[in-house]
Design a binder for these strands. Sequence first.
RNA 1: GCAGGGGUUCCCGAGUGGCCAAAGGGAUCAGACUGUAAAUCUGACGCGAAAGCUUCGGUGGUUCGAAUCCACCCCCCUGCACCA
Length: 434
Amino acid sequence: MATVDATLLQDLQSRGLINQMTGDDELVAHLSEEGRTLYCGFDPTADSLHIGSLVPLLTLKRFQAAGHKPIALVGGATGLIGDPSFKAQERQLNTPEVVSGWVDKIRRQVSQFIDFECGENAASVVNNLDWTAEMNVLDFLRDIGKHFAVNNMIHKESVKQRLDREGEGISFTEFTYLLMQSMDFAELHKRDNCTLQIGGSDQWGNITGGVELTRRQHRGKVFGLTLPLVTKADGTKFGKTEAGTIWLDPAKTSPYAFYQFWLNTADADVYKFLKYFTFLSVEQIEGLEKEDAERQGRPQAQGVLAREVTRLVHGDEGLAAAERITEALFSGGIEQLSESDLEQLRLDGLPSTDLPENFGEQSLINVLVDAGMAASGKQVKDALGRNAVLVNGDAIGMDANADPASAFTAERALFGRYFVVRLGKKKYQLFVAG
RNA sequence: GCAGGGGUUCCCGAGUGGCCAAAGGGAUCAGACUGUAAAUCUGACGCGAAAGCUUCGGUGGUUCGAAUCCACCCCCCUGCACCA
């Protein structure tokens, strides 16, 4: 029997990971007594989760480490409906085939964060389609629907803007999402004696719905706990960069790009993120913060954060790859790289492109845009005009635009065929001549 | 179905016949400063290296000229839909 660490909630509290919870002291007692079963849902809204899901995933892991049994629920059913919570607009429905494909991928992703082989409190993954697919409408309306008062539903903060805002509305389908998710909690309570649901702060309404339904249907006492929404000090959305969403899937966001994302965390956010996204103790993090404050210049926190999170998500190999590239590009000096180093960078996920045969006939701007280095030619033009395009360390001016061959010269090539092109301060791409 | 309101460039949001590729803000990109920060300043920001080209839900029309006017259509929202 796994021993229960009664200080779990204190730790979560001090990390700022508790937004709201039901029951307060009752929940504290509930979790201290023995190992409990808890769950968190992940809807398949894309073919991969992104870093927004990392907080709940890691929290499941924290609960497991403290002796509780986590269930990761993949929303094969709820993903077909669409959660309206705090969404400004009705969402486009995805086809069942598409959603079920995503379910498989997300099931695998979720699985890497929790332990399935630790005996007593081994994790499990479930799909809510299993208990909803066969349900008929009348049962749903009589057994589930009857427990919900529309009066309460329309007062939920999560759907308020959809109800109040001029120009928007909500379909019955999405309005029903609350019942679907509530049903999940009641079901897991019945079959696995699950007594706690965790989720993002936007899930509060859905979670309390489940708490009530479980009480009404099974007279069960269950709890809910929400995690904070991850915000940035500058007010911009967390988890996005110029290149788009940061995904957990290494095929969509390379470990290198992932590592760079965390490395670029603002000072104002980094200690908070360390508490959210790593397993370093709060004392360690505070110690680090103190050290950083005392020394001049660049803090070490970002590096610690990047290493810890990259290792959690992409493992030691992914981290090593990310560090190799970073080291080579930002501090090593590319001319010192060996040929095998360059090949390794390519394998490690540094964006790379084969230089087209006829590149000499195109404009340099075209070559770079086609390679995906910039969204439009204007950006490259701007960069060229400011000496912000470097090929193997040499600045390339605007006059090379009409004559790309003058940028990719044989003398400039590393080992006769490699060109590391830098656009701006942080964007690197490897071009390889054929 | 009826009655109202609405659909503008990534987002918000101005613009109601020429001065509009379309104000302003946000986001984003680049430069300076730096720590691959922040703040600040500068430039870019439909596409195109440029000449130029294509836009304001769609299609047609009026006009020398339309995001702006007209017609029809599509989509979204709100209200009504027993008595009427």
